[in-house]
Design a protein around this nucleic acid. Structure first.
Lengths: 342, 342
DNA sequence: CTGTTAGCGCATTCAA
DNA sequence: TTGAATGCGCTAACAG
């Protein structure tokens, strides 16, 4: 059990200052039961020694940590990393640390991370966009780790947990509605694999809306990717467009994520098909780039900041045992109209 | 000191199996000095109880942890988050955990994170794109936390550390060279604030190359943002373009990052200025979107994957005390020619 | 106010 | 091979 050079501990400070280690602890933790003079002496030598508290020891003693885990499919995806950024900020401001858990929708990686987070004794976990491996929810629940799910619903059987939900059904409805308001009825749909509830709901919402407006859904106008391990999301949209155009002539393409929509537009641009004149395109997520691409992308905006604030807020309430919340919050999306479907 | 419900510990397993806690430890850690029969009994009850080792305790005992910190300016930036993703992957495969430290170039946040990482007793730190607060390097060094700097150089005075460097001077040279090969001599330069070595070197490289090719650098053709707290990078490029066009008529614009280049193109598109016919644009970083935007972006490619592998590899060598490395690795960039400057 | 004491859960030395 | 004992560095009763 070799180890780095020793860093000063409370014991060292105690020895030098001529008090007990407990007294040092009081001083460091600014206890009210300690004289100013002793405190000053202790803190001065602590300073001199460059003392930095050992959180591992403190955590062991307190039987809890000031770390949380954030589980996310892919930090490289614009939509997901926005979530990471906001959450990191909120968490940091509460003096908590964040373990980043990038799962790539892989059930085994999810499992490894959840187990490891439990071992690390994290105070809580934020799960963004759902877990492929549903058994993981049970593990967290069983081991008493508070968690919130953002944009995914956790059933009571999997472990009661607060959720911040987005009305994805409504979002898809807004898309179809907008297409129709443009006089577009031949609408194609493309999506990455239906990994999580959000994607399933978007697809479901599309079907519901089409039905509601009395429009048929033709199989050849729907492209749901099987596996995307080999492709980037953008590439997926590109491929989807190829497939769709090979089989039919839509007037509008609804991509279930902006990333895919970028691929769609890329392909259409290459084919010199005019967007939106020949084919209009609508995405979903309103990632920063959607306003940069040309034509700029009409898309569905999600209140990500609000989702994070609500989610983190709820998580910390549970961590602090202020409430035993199982509340579900549902937020509403809105449509952002830009050039690709004006 | 309230606490969550108790989870089973080695002691519990010991009591139930009728052995000592030490024996349980042997079994769990697969020690060679334990009989198969006892080991099986122990592991079985461990399983039954759903035992999960407490890493906090283990870490305290071993006086080291299996966590590292990754310090990065902004996970929402495509260029930076690629680094996070690769590093997370490599680190996870080594059974290590990653604390994400998002600094937004803020010296205070950097300081908070570095101090906290020391408190958390991380095994090492990966610093991407440099720290604004140079004193932080000294702290890590003083507290004996191994670290590597990626795309930043750490002086010996700040604490000797291995670095993975990129030849940013060369990258800028390639840009200027390419402009000239296109017959473009009136080249404008725009950059976000010169936070780190990479950005300073790119600017420096631009000046050096211009000089080498005998071209003048006019003040009005250079836009270095002062502060960008209020703006997104893309917005910065947008603003920079306004400023530059107000003062002159460049034939080419060199943006020090792709993000800024996107803003440049956005503005030019709005003004119906044709890219590259009227003004050619070259970025830097080769982020995934650079191939998606239209016109697609000519840019400088950085071997990010290699940087991560080299960086992490070096860090873990130091962590394992295999070598006391202070080596500096320099990688070379290359130009990717696309439509914006064909 | 300060010292004494007792662990937190685990790994590891030394005996047996 | 297993048990007993020790301590990692810290917090928090409790006693004085």
């Amino acid at each position: 059990m070799k180890k780095a050079l020793k860093t000063p501990t409370m014991k060292d400070i105690a020895r030098i200052t001529g008090v007990t280690q407990a007294t040092v602890s009081y001083a460091i933790n600014d206890s009210e039961y300690i004289s100013e003079t002793v405190k000053k002496r202790v803190l001065d030598t602590a300073d001199e020694l460059g003392y930095i508290p050992n959180l591992v020891a403190r955590n062991l003693k307190k039987r809890t940590t000031n770390t949380i885990g954030i589980v996310v499919p892919d930090v490289m995806n614009s939509y997901y990393n926005e979530m990471v950024k906001y959450n990191e900020k909120i968490t940091r401001e509460l003096d908590y640390f964040t373990f980043i858990c990038n799962t790539m929708h892989d059930a085994d990686i999810e499992d490894w991370y959840i187990i490891s987070l439990i071992q690390q004794k994290v105070a809580g976990v934020i799960i963004c966009y759902g877990l492929t491996n549903r058994a993981c929810y049970k593990k967290l629940y069983k081991h008493n780790i508070p968690f919130v799910a953002i944009d995914d619903e956790v059933s009571d059987e999997e472990g009661e947990a607060p959720c911040v939900l987005l009305n994805n059904i409504k979002g898809s409805f807004l898309v179809v509605q907008h297409f129709i308001s443009l006089g577009i009825k031949k609408i194609a749909y493309c999506s990455e694999p239906l990994y999580n509830m959000a994607l399933r709901d978007r697809y479901e919402g599309f079907k519901v809306a089409m039905k509601e407006f009395g429009l048929p859904i033709k199989d050849e106008m729907v492209y749901i990717a099987k596996e995307d391990n080999e492709y980037e999301k953008i590439e997926l949209g590109y491929i989807a467009t190829k497939e769709i155009l090979a089989k039919g002539k839509p007037e509008g393409i609804f991509a279930s994520t902006d990333q895919m929509a970028f691929g769609v537009i890329k392909r259409l641009n290459e084919l010199k098909i005019k967007v939106p004149q020949d084919i209009a395109v609508i995405g979903y997520d309103n990632v920063p780039f959607s306003s940069v691409i040309s034509p700029s992308l009409t898309t569905i905006n999600q209140p990500i900041m609000t989702m994070c604030i609500q989610g983190t807020d709820t998580l910390f309430k549970v961590i602090r045992r202020e409430e035993e919340i199982k509340r579900k919050i549902t937020l509403e999306p809105s449509i952002v109209i830009r050039q690709s479907a004006p």
